Amino acid sequence: MTPTLSPRTALFGLLGHPVAHSLSPSMHNAAFAALGIDAVYLAFDVEPGRLAEALTGSRALGVAGWNVTVPHKEAALALAAEADPRAELVGAANTLVPVRAGWRAHNTDVAGFARALAEDLAFHPEGRRCWIWGAGGAARAAVVALALGGAQEIRVMNRNAIRARLLADELGSRLGPTRVAAEDLAAFAPRPGDLVVSATPAGLSDDASWPWDLGSCRELFVYDMAYRRGAETPLVVQARALGHRAASGRSMLLHQGAEAFRLWTGREPPLDAMARAMEPSGPEPGDSFR
């Protein structure tokens, strides 16, 4: 149902690049409609380096809240006037709430990722070894979620080895007793029962490739933070064909979005309505992180 808009309609939205295929507008607009909230959620494509301009202008316009996705999550934290301890621990924000001095930064990806692993893969990190490919805001949230869940060891891989090492050194110093270390891609050698996470948007591409060979591994848990509207990502398809348990980021999107909704509105989100709004409606890829 198309909302009736007026000057009193509250505006929420997503800032990222790209955002054209995001399911967040469908999800949040369904939630507003289900609860009778006079609000609308839109996606805005903001080029790298222009987040500060967007936040300044939106503050003047009275925007009621933002989600932030790649590539702006770390910048969103730096630009916020206040930050929730979880966002400070991660070093990245995906949700902004207006406060008197500007914006308060939150990170709902941590809780969303942990819940998605439990629901989609029946995976619980306590005492486990985990491998993460990526070194941006999503990877940082994954590291924190797994460490808070009791993971024994987290190995961070990235084509830019320096970024992986910086992430591991920074978060490892805060997340003991979990061991967080950068790992060379050539040393990827998971054991049965390990978790492998792609914390990049690579899965949005039909010709995506990953710097590992899952065919030589047994009984892995594989999670791709990317998702698609009408099909699974290539990594999930490949992993399942090889006998691994695998899932993509749709439920992570739902649960991090639900937590953002609570922060903005103080209301309990209608999860069923939000999930229905995310049902596949076409073959286009969706933005995994929002």
Rank of each mutant, 00 (worst) to 15 (best):
A182Q: 05
L148W: 06
G176N: 11
E47C: 06
G16Y: 07
E259Q: 08
G36I: 05
L117G: 11
V110S: 11
A101F: 01
S26D: 13
G150R: 06
R165D: 15
E47Q: 12
R8A: 07
D109Y: 04
A239N: 02
E232Q: 15
A182I: 04
A81I: 00
A147S: 07
L61S: 04
L235M: 00
P3S: 10
I162S: 05
V143N: 10
K73E: 04
P98W: 05
A39L: 10
T265G: 01
F221Q: 01
P269F: 12
L263M: 13
S288L: 10
P190Q: 02
A246Y: 01
G203P: 15
A101R: 14
D84N: 01
G203W: 11
A114S: 13
H72W: 07
L23W: 07
D184Q: 02
T2K: 15
R267G: 00
A118Q: 12
A273Q: 06
G36K: 06
F12S: 02
S6P: 15
H72R: 12
E53A: 14
G112F: 06
A246M: 04
A260F: 13
S216P: 01
G137E: 00
N67W: 02
A54R: 02
A226F: 12
A122M: 02
A114Q: 00
R191H: 05
A20K: 03
A273M: 08
T69D: 02
E82P: 13
D169F: 00
S173L: 13
C217K: 03
D84A: 03
A60P: 05
V237D: 06
E88I: 09
V237Q: 12
T233E: 07
A81P: 08
T4E: 11
A75Q: 15
A247D: 05
P270D: 09
E82W: 13
P25V: 01
V63K: 07
P3E: 07
V110K: 12
R165S: 14
R191F: 00
A80C: 03
R163C: 00
G49F: 06
R262E: 04
L96Q: 02
D45E: 14
A93I: 09
A105N: 01
F44H: 13
S24D: 15
L5N: 03
T233W: 06
R290K: 07
F113V: 11
A116S: 05
D84I: 02
L51Q: 09
E153W: 08
N158T: 09
M274A: 10
P85V: 06
G62Q: 11
G102C: 07
A52C: 12
S173W: 07
R140I: 03
E119S: 05
P192A: 14
S22A: 01
A75G: 08
P270I: 12
G13Q: 04
L195G: 02
R290C: 12
R240I: 02
G230I: 11
S209K: 07
